[in-house]
Design a binder for these strands. Structure first.
Lengths: 336, 336
DNA sequence: AGTTTTGATGAAAGCGCTATCATTCAAGAT
DNA sequence: ATCTTGAATGATAGCGCTTTCATCAAAACT
């Protein structure tokens, strides 16, 4: 019975008494065929359990219907939501998402770029503008549409937010509340231009207010809640601890609140905390977190749309900057 | 200068003065060649910027070096960690992860299975044992190694944990503390056999203690912290509220704690809460969450290993059940 | 010296599909 | 009745690589 493991296009063609070309058309452009032949082809395909071979199709057509995404880590609500949103948007157009992560390691990112390009993707999404020379070269010579997210460069499409402004907004909010000594917990700065920008923005806001953000008041931590707690602990144990802390990501801010509370320091009465991101959890903790909202899902959705537009040749190097805004909740109060 | 957009294998062969076969070997089995020719090929490849075409390679060899993973959602620490772990393990062997999610929708899962199979994956990881007939049929006839995670079936490889036991452990812990009226917040049960099993396990433990888990004390919610809060609210507003609540996932338990605290109900003094999963955050909130630890990363790592072993033909339908254990922290106390 | 073995390379047949171009046939135009 | 035209379908040449199988020299045996 089973002459061949898998039915191929030619098998269907033979069974239906048509040419391979016709079967190919039946799958890709059904409206080019007579309803009658179309039905015959479908019938044969069903009967033989025909399942087109994506690789062969890709090789012949030059399109893989696959989009690659390389994110710093999957273990983050932020990137999970971006990917989720991208996936939905892409699926609607028949595209599939190929995901890789590099754990903040430039060499790993370069390798991922190489792998995905070799594997054959029709488009590529990356996070941030900072990357190795090799990676940049690969991207430039690959001839594949690329979209950068969070922070971009002018030489390719980008869907960004103003991370500097995010830090600025957070700091200004605290300054407006009368805080004068403000600390910040940030992610490890190397190979993370988002955190760099947020820190720079906060620092700038302080300078504009005639204040300072000395290195001693900045703690670099791994992007976990434990990192937030550790950073908070370090700042609180300073001779002159800050009266307010900015978390470079919400997870840090939440960790700060936990750490403060576990030390009997009331938030926001004795310590104000503000985050950046506005993840789901931020609204639900006690006290609810004041934070700067970053439209994560929208970024993913636009990355997908931008990539698809570029693939179709509709647009080129489209730049989109999404608005962000401060969301005031209960974790911040007047200082001193 | 640029005669051709892309250098192909034959171009390298011509440049190096060898046959295409030799170049192919140079890339795949370098030790078959004379050091001299190997060097010449490498030199030409470098010079021409040769980059093998994954699709052509896949078509010719029948291998894509790609593993597919279909998870309920990307927006969950749990699955993120599984994928992360899989990715690392696979990357080490030169495999790439192709990720899809179905948002608890069986039809979407079926579609994802079809897409990934069409796209050509060398192996497939799925979550849970429950799925549409179509999906099951596709998997059976695909001839591709499959591994199920969390809960499995005997007809294919699986890396599981005893979800029923998880619910049982959580409930028994509370019963041991003297609680008699116990509620549970679970995820939507349809198409989620993990939550079904956890609920069943809890119920069984209660029955074994001569107690009951009536439907009124079970609240089904979406898998977010907001869901946890809402579920907790519903249970607390009952005429006779429970003295302890089990969260079907840690996120629910954390939401329960937040909700209770925001209502002035002390945890664990007035309400005990226990979760299942042991996510990073659970250890860091106040009070730290008592929960049942599920070795998430290990699941991912073993899924990868199992799949690779099956691909190499080393094993078949390997079943692994990972141990789980209760982690007692501060969110539970004696009842009544 | 003659024969076998071995190791390195080449020749060429696909892998399963798409896309171009050619062909056919019927309907409409002249 | 003849000529166009256009829609539906067929024939076929690749897409870029892997993989037998064949070849051929050099090394290893009698």
């Amino acid at each position: 019975m089973a002459k061949r493991a898998k039915a191929r296009l030619v098998d269907v063609a033979r069974d239906a008494g048509v040419s391979p070309a016709t079967v190919s058309r039946a799958m890709a452009q059904p409206d080019l065929l007579t309803p009658d032949t179309l039905a015959r082809v479908h019938e044969s395909a069903r009967k033989l359990g025909y399942r087109p071979d994506g690789m062969a199709r890709a090789l012949a057509s030059g399109r893989t219907m696959t989009i690659g995404a390389i994110v710093p880590t999957l273990d983050s609500t932020i990137f999970a939501r971006v990917l989720q949103a991208m996936q939905s948007a892409l699926a609607r157009e028949g595209y599939q998402l190929l995901v890789a992560s590099h754990e903040m390691n430039p060499a790993a990112e370069t390798e991922a770029v190489r792998t995905l390009l070799t594997r054959g993707v029709d488009g590529l999404m990356l996070v941030g503008a900072e990357r190795s020379q090799d990676a940049a070269m690969l991207l430039r010579t690959a001839g594949v549409p690329v979209v950068l997210s969070w922070v971009g460069t002018s030489d390719c499409a980008a869907v960004t937010v103003d991370n500097r402004l995010a830090g600025h907004l957070a700091a200004r909010h605290l300054i407006g509340l009368g805080h004068r000594r403000i600390g910040m917990v940030v992610g490890h700065l190397p190979f993370n231009d988002r955190q760099q920008a947020r820190l720079a923005g906060a620092r700038q806001a302080l300078h504009e207010a005639g204040l300072d953000l000395p290195g001693a008041l900045v703690s670099e931590q791994g992007l976990t809640m434990a990192g937030g707690r550790a950073g908070c602990a370090r700042l609180l144990e300073l001779g002159e601890p800050p009266s307010a802390i900015i978390g470079g990501i919400d997870l840090f801010a939440i960790g700060c609140i936990q750490e403060a509370q576990s030390r009997g320091i009331a938030v926001p009465e004795a310590l104000s905390v503000v985050g950046i991101d506005d993840i789901e959890m931020s609204a639900h903790i006690t006290p609810a977190l004041t934070t700067v909202m970053i439209p994560t899902a929208r970024i993913g959705q636009l990355c997908a749309a931008t990539l698809l537009a570029e693939i179709k040749g509709e647009r080129r190097h489209e730049q989109t900057e999404l608005p962000i805004e401060l969301v005031v909740r209960q974790s911040t109060a007047a200082g001193r």
